[in-house]
């Protein structure tokens, strides 16, 4: 018995498109593994030979260019990144969550649409422009307002980063609030709750996982930001003890120094080690945020 050959033109198009879409789908995985392998390979030499874990994590002295005794203590850089990101998230949470609550629960019709567009626009501002604002507007402003000698410090970078992280946090938080079924609001309103009581007692608790994911993604955004932080933080190696201290971030260190090092040198490899650290931390943050969000969808 002979089967009819069904492979006409449409059959081939269908197969071709299916493979193309499949390639597109797995490309994200391929790229992320590729990037990880690349930075690991470049940084591996340092990790296996030169890296003193104690020095790397606890020594504040990052002196890679010292001729006599180069040291690679990333503690001050980690402290710099952590302090800027921490301040940024602290500043950003009330604004983003507040904006999300307003957009999702209170704003109506056109106001809501305009606000959403504006917030997305805020996310589209290039980071170098933010850095420029930090450098030329925030810097003199901070010197004036707080009577400090330098305006390029944690406060400056934190405020800039808060503004940069706010759009993504607002958008994700708003999605989380919108995902709360409307029948909860209806039920609570019918019981005589005001809009604010509904928000506070029903919507926010029901959306808490999504809100947490929003904050985590904001943290991830702050952690990875480079240019604006480089321009606004003062870029001086320092373990800070006030928000008016200049600091240097992990990302900014890589950006500023990588071009100046010989490929394959110890310094070059040490910078890639910083890269691995950044990659690992942002990966964990994003993964956690994702798991948290998946958690709510399932329940």
């Amino acid at each position: 018995m002979q089967h009819e050959d069904v492979r006409d033109f449409h059959w081939y198009v269908d197969k071709a498109m299916a493979s193309l879409v499949f390639l597109g789908g797995i490309s994200a995985i391929v790229f992320i593994i590729g990037i990880f392998l690349f930075i690991t390979r470049e940084g591996l030499g340092f990790i296996t030979d030169g890296l003193d874990l104690r020095e790397f994590f606890f020594d504040p002295a990052w002196r890679p260019t010292s001729d006599s005794n180069p040291t690679y203590g990333a503690f001050a850089l980690i402290a710099g990144t952590a302090s800027i990101t921490g301040l940024a998230v602290l500043l950003s949470i009330p604004f983003s969550i507040g904006a999300a609550i307003y957009i999702a629960e209170f704003a109506q019709g056109r106001t809501r649409e305009i606000l959403k567009i504006l917030i997305e626009l805020l996310a589209a501002i290039p980071s170098v422009v933010w850095g420029f604002i930090g450098l030329s507007i925030m810097n003199p402003l901070i010197i004036d307002m707080f009577d400090v000698p330098v305006g390029l410090n944690i406060l400056n970078a934190g405020v800039i980063l808060a503004l940069m992280a706010a759009p993504i946090m607002t958008t994700i938080a708003e999605d989380a609030l919108k995902a709360v079924p409307d029948r909860y609001r209806e039920a609570a309103e019918a019981l005589g709750a005001t809009r604010w009581q509904v928000t506070l007692k029903v919507v926010l608790p029901a959306a808490k996982h999504g809100l947490m994911a929003a904050v985590l993604l904001g943290v991830g955004r702050g952690f990875g930001e480079t240019m604006a932080v480089l321009m606004a933080s003062g870029h001086s190696i320092n373990v800070p003890d006030s928000i008016f201290d200049s600091v240097r971030a992990l990302t900014a260190t890589i950006a500023a120094e990588l071009g100046e090092t010989a490929v394959g040198s110890e310094h070059y490899q040490a910078l890639f080690t910083l890269g691995i650290l950044l990659f690992a931390v942002t990966f964990i943050i994003n993964l956690t945020a994702d798991l948290v969000m998946r958690g709510i969808k399932r329940s």
């Binding site: 079924p181 029948r183 909860y184 209806e186 039920a187 609570a188 019918a190 029903v202 608790p205 029901a206």
Partner: peptide
Amino acid sequence: VFQRPNPLPL
């Protein structure tokens, strides 16, 4: 009382 039971997520 609504068509679909709508207990609050509490």
